[in-house]
């Protein structure tokens, strides 16, 4: 196995770098902002950015899930949660921040240390490209006859696992719908758990 693969600076790599820069910028802005509506919109933008990044990494199915769930549904769900609570986040107590910062830096440096062992981006000799992945690439056209190998793995080779995942996601979706009270109309009257005459919080 020769390990002389050197990643080159193609336009796609430059595009990836600019997308990742924007991701970091959005993440820090979301951390700094106390305006919860801005955070909800920025989380949608974050999902769109990471979906574009996933497409550039050829993970189209992940990108599609990220766009549908992250940018579509979850930003609306975040807005719903925001309307139930408050429009502004309380300021963080600053004397607790150094401990959290130290923990974050420790974990982050461990994660960065772990990336040193990873193969270079796009390396054809990476373990993901040589061992069992190659087996799936070779056997899918004969065994499943689906053009997209990811679809073959998701829906056939690990079909029961995908079925379980779908059930989990469906249950979570139903629970969120019940919590947010979508369609909570009974006898023509909206259901409200705040007693009549009780001033609502935040109004």
């Amino acid at each position: 196995m020769n390990n002389d693969f050197v990643p080159t600076l193609t336009p796609i790599v430059l595009l990836d770098l600019s997308l990742l820069t924007m991701l970091i910028f959005v993440a820090f802005t979301m951390l700094k902002s106390r305006h919860l509506f801005a955070v909800a919109m920025l989380s949608g933008i974050y999902s769109l950015l990471s979906a574009a990044f996933f497409v550039s990494l050829d993970a189209v199915d992940v990108a599609f899930t990220e766009a549908a769930v992250g940018a579509g549904i979850s930003s609306v769900l975040m807005l719903g949660a925001m309307l139930l609570t408050s429009r502004r986040e309380k300021p963080v107590i600053s004397n607790r921040a150094p401990v959290a910062l130290a923990v974050v830096f420790a974990v982050g440096s461990v994660l960065f240390y772990a990336t040193i062992d990873m193969p270079a981006f796009g390396d054809p000799n990476a373990p993901a490209n040589v061992s069992i992945g190659q087996e799936y690439v070779e056997r899918t056209p004969d065994e499943i006859a689906v053009p997209n190998i990811v679809t073959a793995v998701l829906a056939s080779y690990r079909g029961f696992d995908t079925l379980g995942e779908t059930m989990v996601i469906f249950t979570a979706g139903v629970a969120v719908m019940l919590l947010l009270g979508a369609g909570s109309v009974r006898g023509g009257k909206p259901v409200d758990d705040v007693p009549v005459g009780d001033p609502k919080d935040g109004e």
């Binding site: 949608g44 769109l48 979906a51 497409v55 189209v60 990108a63 599609f64 766009a67 549908a68 940018a71 579509g72 930003s75 609306v76 807005l79 719903g80 309307l83 947010l180 009270g181 979508a182 369609g183 909570s184 109309v185 023509g188 009257k189 909206p190």
Partner: peptide, 29 residues
């Protein structure tokens, strides 16, 4: 995929704006 993103984007924006107008997903009767 890009076409589907356009659809999701459109529906998402409509959902957000409708949410601000009516405060809920299901408009009260």
């Amino acid at each position: 995929i890009a076409l589907l993103y356009a659809l999701i984007n459109f529906v998402g924006t409509i959902a957000i704006l409708k949410f601000f107008r009516y405060r809920t997903f299901a408009v009260s009767m």
